[in-house]
Amino acid sequence: MTEDIIKIKDLIVAYDEKPAIWHLNMTLQENSITAIVGPNGAGKSTLIKSIMQLIKPVSGEIHINGSKSKKALRDIAYVPQKGEVNWEFPTTVLDVVLMGRYVHKGWIKRPNKEDHKIAMSALREMKMEAFRNRQISELSGGQRQRVFLARAICQDADIYIMDEPLQGIDITTEKLIIETIKSLQEQGKSFLIVHHNLDTVKEYFDHVVIMNKTIFASGKISEVWTSENIDKAYSEVSAVR
């Protein structure tokens, strides 16, 4: 039996004293590729930010690998939504990917040969090695997303959390990202991914969490990905009964 690598118990999160997440219980199965789906304003990004401790919940518990501490976050590689970084920053593709290694570095210590090797192989995996000396501002949307996935790979974490990584990118990049995710799964990694396109859920993921403030259904795609469950989450604009 597989274990729960992330366990969320009775989570309540509020923005401006309005609940965005309500009594949410969920688990992330180890070695799964899990999609989070739900309508706009369902609290998907809020959920991810709570896991990353970017927001303080009102109540509830989040265990990562059985631990609640800040240190546990080191087991997670986080790929944020696009547009949250300073694109004018003078840095090359290789440099950005190397930033993934800083999780394993102390203060002042600089990346060594080993780190460079890891970064280069991550770039190769994302088919971006030819671009390693480009400035990030010169990349297309899809290429940028590849760089951020390469940075996440560099972190060498057990869990990957991504906020809509497939939003607004070209089809080649989309296929490449999915391929990479599947091959990382074979190496034992787990994925929690906010996903928008309901048509591709079945093809790309093996587990799914359907949410709207709280969980409506979660589990194996084959068991819970039914039109009944989807309708339930999407039709209720507000969850009042």
Binding site: Q53, L54, L73, Y78, P80, E84, M99, V103, W107, I108
Partner: peptide, 20 residues
């Protein structure tokens, strides 16, 4: 002393807070 922190923060503030 804070070179890497400053660099990562300036480039990507959200990422910087997820790595401590």
């Amino acid at each position: 002393i804070f070179y890497h922190q400053i660099r990562i923060y300036t480039f990507d503030p959200i990422y910087s807070s997820t790595i401590g």
